[in-house]
């Protein structure tokens, strides 16, 4: 097994555990964050704040590295233009997030927490990704 895969495994384990600890595996809590006109639940602010803080430091370290630890080069997004697909995609994603209280990470860990319900969302999400693939993907 190459070192990049070991890195992905360690990252995935910690990411999944963090999501489960954070309260974000609960769609009602996530919808509580989005419910600013009702009984607002600020928990998500702490989750995103903690993660962004750590990653802010990681980006500073990354800027001083010529290559990652387990591979010979960085593969990072280079696009900078704010275009229509970005905005339209964010709006559609936000509507789906609000309807179900789920985004991709919490939905995936739902497969081990509440499999009978989460599998419906995950299959629909994969279908949505596939519809994009056959209708929008430039080939």
């Amino acid at each position: 097994m190459n070192r990049e895969i070991i890195g992905a495994i360690v990252s995935g384990l910690l990411f999944g555990a963090g999501l489960a600890v954070s309260g974000m595996a609960d769609p009602i809590r996530v919808r509580g964050f989005l419910d600013i006109l009702g009984s607002w639940d600020p928990t998500l602010v702490f989750v995103m704040g903690g993660a962004v803080l750590v990653m802010g430091l990681a980006w500073i370290v990354q800027g001083r590295m010529s290559e990652p630890l387990f591979r010979d080069q960085f593969s990072l997004p280079s696009k900078t233009d704010v275009d229509t697909p970005l905005i339209a995609g964010a709006i559609l994603f936000g509507i789906g997030w609000g309807v179900a209280g789920l985004c991709p990470g919490p939905a995936l860990i739902g497969l081990v927490l509440v499999p009978s319900s989460a599998v419906i969302f995950v299959l629909a999400m994969l279908a949505g990704m596939y519809i994009y693939q056959i209708t929008m993907e430039r080939k």
Binding site: E4, G7, A20, V54, M55, P68
Partner: peptide, 19 residues
């Protein structure tokens, strides 16, 4: 939330700085 968020941050940092 904060503890989980820091774990998610470290996980993302491992992916960035490692892979």
């Amino acid at each position: 939330g904060l503890v989980g968020g820091i774990m998610i941050g470290i996980a993302s940092a491992i992916m960035l700085l490692g892979a």
